[in-house]
């Protein structure tokens, strides 16, 4: 009944038949074994990687002009004010009808019908740029990048470029339209994200 370790070892010793001679076809067998194994494991892996990289093949929709606010809501005192960008948004499988998707600083000089639009996203690392009241400038709360109220860099600044200006239009009914775009951060040139 009881099988001791010794007995088991004896059994292993005695019951193992000698290995057969190596055949010429063993190379073929090895090759086929490797190929089958590789195909079996690599194809699901490749399928997985292909699917995982799906975001690379997905183009985001082209940026469009979005109505932000009426011209009258922007005081003509040269001080930028923050306005939300409201638009339909698609987040993978969920569609959001008109919700805030970002924010833009709009400013207008005295008596001027021209509006200057600056993206509120810091070109350094993508934080949200604030207006700091005491020194009247833009300041990023993350790494202290500073910009003048017109968006130019105040040196020394960790930011590689000035704030990103956005294209701006005013339609016949006095509505301010802004071309909403995101740009790559941390580089000297303004490159829109695909």
């Amino acid at each position: 009944m009881r099988s001791t370790p010794d007995k088991a070892t004896d059994f292993e010793k005695t019951s193992k038949p000698a290995l057969g001679p190596e055949h010429r076809r063993s190379f073929v067998i090895k090759a086929i074994a490797l190929a089958c194994g590789a195909i079996a494991t690599l194809s699901p892996f490749a399928a997985g990687v292909w699917t995982y990289l799906d975001p690379l093949r997905r183009q985001s929709k082209a940026s469009t002009f979005i109505r932000v606010v009426s011209l009258g809501s922007i005081p003509d005192d040269g001080i930028p004010r923050l306005f939300p960008i409201v638009s339909d948004r698609l987040d993978a499988w969920t569609g959001f009808p008109s919700e805030p998707i970002g924010a833009v600083y709009l400013s207008r000089e005295k008596g001027s019908p021209q509006v200057k639009a600056l993206s509120a996203i810091c070109p350094h690392a993508g934080c949200f740029v604030d207006i700091s009241a005491p020194s009247d400038c833009f300041r990023c709360p993350c790494h202290n990048s500073s910009f003048t109220l017109s968006g130019a860099m105040i040196q020394p600044s960790p930011s590689p470029r000035e704030m990103d200006a956005l294209d701006c239009q005013i339609d016949e009914s006095g509505q301010v339209l802004v071309k909403w775009e995101n740009f790559y951060t941390g580089i000297a040139t303004k490159v829109p994200r695909a």
Binding site: I101, D130, P141
Partner: peptide
């Protein structure tokens, strides 16, 4: 999380 709301305490 709110992409339209500044967050100056980000660390």
């Amino acid at each position: 999380a709110d992409p339209s709301q500044p967050y100056a305490a980000a660390r």
